[in-house]
Design a binder for these strands. Structure first.
Length: 513
DNA sequence: CTGGGGATGGGGCCC
DNA sequence: GGGGCCCCATCCCCA
């Protein structure tokens, strides 16, 4: 029995030793493998860091190239030759080029509605967003393509197309792909950029819209300082052009609100234009002619009555308070055929400047569609005047003085201009400038300054004159008549005043002291 | 300096 | 005598 116990004890000891030895071996093996494994891990980590450094360097290089390319793209896009740019970018979109950056832009001229060749490019810009840049070139060439050219279109939504280099990059640098969302799959939130050049000139304005699913921001990407509204090339063409600003192409001139207000009595004081009419007008002699024919005959005497009545109606005196002509503009197109080119026969009974004005006024009152006259339309606006009658009204008078044209100013300076209580002889007042004249004919002739009426036409040229005397003087141009000869030289002149002026040469009199 | 024209005032004639 | 019409002289501006 004792031997049996000893035997078991020995066996147990041996098994323990063996077990310990086995554990020790295992541990040793594990330790050795672990060391090797750690060494391998360390080496791999080193390699990994080296690759990362390479990657960073490569990305920096790519970013630099991308920035340079984007700069060149903008420069090229701002040029009118958009078609060339399109071809270049089309090739790149098809993989023929080397557009490595995320700012791949599809530049196409407007008018191309099919984008089969140059599908929108989706690139991974490293931010997990797929971005599209579409530069719509609206150049003069594109505009010249004719009407119907679509100048702006929405960018494509799909981004399943990837550039070749992007795919290569993903394959070469899988670790990058593990950090970033897969570029193949759509990566919300999607950012859309739309860069629209709204000018084909060097001073292009790039209108950029950045849209996201949750945010829409419109901003002006580039503004070279030339407002497209002030760009002469843009004025007048291009669907994207702004309507002419009233303050630019159409300056804010008062003629658009010119009105002739006929107000009587208390209207002057209260400012109520009752009865009143507001209009702006372009003097049309033809219309006046019609007025002469269609309006009931108003004899000159009637006109005198009217003329006098204007200044004496109601409680108003001759100062003209009863008639307020505020900002009148009258224009005469000198080249327009004067159907009312009145000769002496037409100037017979019934012809009256005042009646013309009545008809003129009435036609304006009854015709709301009277063409407005812009002083900018022609330089021959010497007849354009803005007057305000009502000399007793200081404000009106001030306004009148401010807007009175130079000729009227000259007339005033020469002792014209009726004043209140001027002479009794000058009882005929001009309805436009309130200047007084001694007789009706004088004021009629004078008012032609304002109305532009020129009844006297030269038979040998297109010249027209408001006065017969001036026509007669003018006709010496055609006849060559020079009745005024200098007594001290051979010079001859057609006008007496010219002779008088010429003689200063002999007398040594200076024109200007 | 000249040529041409715009605008105005004055005077004579006629009704 | 007054008013209208016509003519002319004149001043001025602009090209």
């Amino acid at each position: 029995m004792a031997d049996c116990v000893v035997f078991h004890t020995q066996i147990a000891s041996i098994m323990e030793v063996l077990a310990n030895a086995a554990v020790a071996n295992i541990c040793k093996l594990v330790d050795d493998d672990y060391a090797v494994f750690r060494l391998e891990i360390t080496q791999s980590q080193k390699e990994n860091r080296a690759l990362r450094r390479k990657l960073q360097i490569f990305e920096l290089k790519v970013a630099r190239e991308r920035a340079e390319r984007a700069t060149r793209e903008r420069v090229l896009a701002s040029r009118p030759s958009s078609v060339k740019i399109l071809d270049r970018y089309r090739g790149m979109a098809r993989g023929e080029g080397h557009l490595t950056g995320g700012h791949r832009s599809s530049v196409k001229p407007v008018g191309h509605n099919t984008w089969r060749d140059d599908q929108p490019v989706t690139v991974d810009e490293g931010s997990g967003t797929s971005t599209q840049h579409i530069i719509m070139i609206e150049s003069a060439d594109a505009e010249a393509a004719g009407p119907g050219v679509k100048l702006e279109r929405s960018e494509r939504e799909e981004d399943t197309w990837h550039s070749r280099d992007t795919q290569t990059r993903v394959a070469v640098e899988p670790h990058v792909a593990t950090k970033d969302p897969p570029t193949i799959a759509p990566a919300p939130p999607r950012t859309r950029h739309r860069i629209t050049e709204v000018s084909g000139t060097q001073n292009a304005v790039l209108k950029s819209e950045t849209d996201t699913d949750t945010l829409t921001v419109t901003h002006r990407l580039l503004h070279t300082g030339s407002d497209h509204r002030s760009d002469p090339e843009r004025l007048g063409k291009g669907p994207l052009r702004y309507p002419p600003a009233p303050g630019t192409e159409y300056l804010p001139v008062f003629h658009q609100s010119q009105r002739m207000v006929h107000s009587r009595g208390d209207a002057l004081d209260t400012g109520v234009d009752v009865p009143s009419c507001s209009y702006s007008t372009e003097m049309d002699p033809g219309n006046i002619s019609l007025g002469l024919e269609t309006q009931p005959d108003l004899s000159r005497e009637d006109w005198n009555q009217y003329n006098s009545g204007l200044y004496s109606e109601g409680s108003l005196d001759k100062k003209g308070e009863g008639l307020v002509i505020d900002e009148v503009t009258v224009k005469v197109e000198g080249d327009a055929p004067l159907t009312w080119n009145v000769d002496k026969t037409h100037l017979g009974e019934g012809y009256s400047q005042g009646r013309d004005f009545l008809d003129y006024r009435e036609s304006l009152e009854t015709n709301p569609n009277v063409t407005t006259h812009s002083p900018l339309h022609t330089v021959r606006d010497r007849e354009s005047v803005s007057t305000s009658m009502g000399p007793s009204d200081s404000q009106d008078h001030v306004l009148f003085d401010q807007v009175l044209n130079s000729k009227d100013q000259r007339a005033k300076g020469r002792g014209g201009g009726a004043t209140l209580g001027n002479s009794k002889e000058k009882r005929f007042l001009c309805m436009f400038c309130n200047k007084g004249f001694s007789c009706l004919q004088k004021v009629e002739i004078h008012q032609r300054v304002h109305t532009g009426e020129k009844p006297y036409s030269c038979t040998q040229c297109h010249m027209r004159f408001a006065e017969a005397g001036n026509l007669k003087r003018h006709q010496r141009v055609h006849t060559g008549e020079k009745p005024f000869g200098c007594t001290q030289c051979h010079m001859r002149f057609a006008q007496a005043g010219h002779l008088k002026r010429h003689q200063r040469v002999h007398t040594g009199e200076k024109s200007y002291s």
